[in-house]
Simulated assay, not measured.
Amino acid sequence: MCTNVLLTGGRAPATLELARMFGKQGHEVHVADSFSYSISRYSKYVTFHEIRSPRQDESQYIEDLNNIIDENGISLLVPTCEEIFYIAKHKDVFPSSCVVFTEEIEVLETLHRKDRFIQLVKQLGYAAPETHSVSDVRGWESFFQKRKKEEWVAKPVYSRFSNGTCFSADFPEAVERLKRGVPYVIQALVKGKQYCTYSISVDGELLAHTQYEALHRGKGGASVAFKHEERRELERWVRSFVRKMRFTGSIAFDFILTEEGGWLPIECNPRVTSGIHLFRGCFLPGLFSQEKERVFPCKEGFMISALCLWNEGKRILTLNQKMPPYPKGYKDIFFDQEDPGPFLYQGISLYGWRREAKRLGVSITEASTYDIQWDGEGQ
């Protein structure tokens, strides 16, 4: 049975992947975003709706979504990026005829905020890195006076793309943020390999799961190449966690595989992430509606070709042997013979982000979430 589906966060390549999945299976796909150059709008499977920003006009954003739902007979709403928090906060105002695929805001907030996530992990009986919270400059200075000789990583409790992250007590930006009331977490620096997971769970049942090593990264720290790797112990951890939480929705974790062979979670993203590319060609849309059969990731690797080529150029020019080589044999996440628009127009989307970053006076990575990010608004 075909569904009229509404996806939000059309700017994200992960949303484009999901839109193509729905579209190829005969569903009518609508995508809403406040960024007019969203990559998904160039897909032949998508009817695009430009709407208000949830961060800048929360009530109008929810009203815009409700209008799209009413006018187009939407029966499934799937938030994909950080606008999920605003949608979850107002989950009760959407019509009962439309399934909103997200957990409650209280659950999402606990998972998203880095200090509360670590507290939850420990409460559920899992190991986690030593983690402390500081809310002002006095707390920051007091902590590092006592523990300065140890190795730590500090980051804002709400952050993305490693923004504001530091590995030293002498970090002026952290002090300035603390002065503005931005709380930080200080976490023991764990040596090892970083892995990312992406899963879909319904009522605590793990229906889709993948993990990949975060080997190839962009400037902001986010992965730009992805290939599923069998790690049964990691999958068991995630399955146990979502079962204890009775979690419904998309959920992703960052882990460190320690030098001793243990797994330590460091943060959580309770939303769609790049791991969804590893389910290309799978019957994934069914997990959001009626079908509840387990779906497994494909064996192919995927990448953002332009960024991987950029990294390869830097590796060659700087003779940096520590940088991973270009991921050969991986497919570009934008390219699809049946849907060439996003691949052909990705330069236009990048132009839009450059223009937006210049207007806001921030980096492109910061601009990409500026109008949808959630930093605990109203909580």
Score class of each variant (00 low, 15 high):
Met303Pro: 04
Glu213Pro: 02
Tyr370Val: 01
His277Met: 07
Glu28Asn: 15
Glu312Asn: 10
Phe48Trp: 00
Glu291His: 02
Val107Asp: 00
Ala174Pro: 07
Phe22Gln: 05
Gln346Phe: 08
Ala252Ile: 01
Lys149Trp: 01
Gln119Trp: 06
Phe117Thr: 03
Glu17Arg: 09
Glu205Asn: 14
Glu300Trp: 04
Ser201Gln: 10
Ser59Ile: 15
Gly9Cys: 06
Pro324Leu: 07
Lys331Ser: 14
Glu82Cys: 04
Glu338Arg: 06
Gly192Tyr: 06
Ile51Glu: 01
Ile84Asn: 10
Gly73Ala: 03
Arg55His: 08
Pro324Ser: 08
Leu18Ser: 05
Tyr45Glu: 06
Gln346Leu: 09
Phe241Arg: 02
Thr210Trp: 09
Gly352Tyr: 07
Leu65Arg: 05
Gln373Thr: 09
Arg147His: 15
Arg246Phe: 11
Phe171Ser: 14
Phe253Leu: 15
Ser168Cys: 09
Trp374Phe: 13
Ala214Arg: 13
Ala208Lys: 01
Gly125Phe: 05
Tyr351Gln: 03
Glu205Val: 10
Ile39Ala: 05
Glu259Gln: 10
Phe171Asn: 12
Arg52Gly: 14
Ser135Tyr: 06
Tyr184Ser: 08
Asp170Val: 12
Pro327Ser: 05
Lys179His: 05
Val46Leu: 03
Arg138Met: 03
Pro183Glu: 08
Thr165Ser: 13
Val93Cys: 14
Leu317Lys: 12
Lys314Gly: 02
Ser135Asn: 15
Met323Ile: 09
Ile372Leu: 12
Lys155Met: 09
Ser349Gln: 12
Gln373Arg: 14
Asp254Val: 04
Ala154Tyr: 04
Pro183Gln: 09
Val99Thr: 15
Tyr61Ser: 02
Met21Leu: 12
Val78Ala: 08
Phe161Pro: 06
Gly275Gln: 00
Gly329Leu: 07
Phe241Cys: 06
Ile304Gly: 01
Val157Asn: 03
Ala367His: 02
Val272Ser: 04
Phe288Met: 06
Gly347His: 14
Val29Ser: 06
Leu206Asp: 05
Pro79Leu: 02
Ser34Thr: 13
Phe171Thr: 02
Ser305Tyr: 04
Glu103Gly: 13
His90Tyr: 10
Pro342Asp: 02
Ile256Cys: 13
Ser53Gly: 08
Arg41Leu: 11
Arg239Cys: 04
Arg280Phe: 07
Phe343Met: 12
Trp263Cys: 00
Gly23Asn: 05
Gly313Leu: 13
Ser43Asp: 00
Ile316His: 02
Leu16Ile: 08
Leu360Trp: 01
Val362Glu: 07
Asp136Thr: 00
Cys268Arg: 08
Trp237Phe: 15
Tyr330His: 11
Leu360Val: 09
His90Glu: 01
Leu309Met: 15
Leu257Phe: 12
Ile118Asp: 04
Leu284Gln: 08
Tyr326Met: 09
Ile266Asn: 03
Tyr330Cys: 02
Phe22Glu: 03
Asn72Phe: 04
Ile200Thr: 11
Lys328His: 10
Lys331His: 15
Val99Ser: 13
Ser96Gln: 15
Ile84His: 07
Ser133Tyr: 14
Thr110Glu: 13
Leu120Phe: 11
Glu366Cys: 05
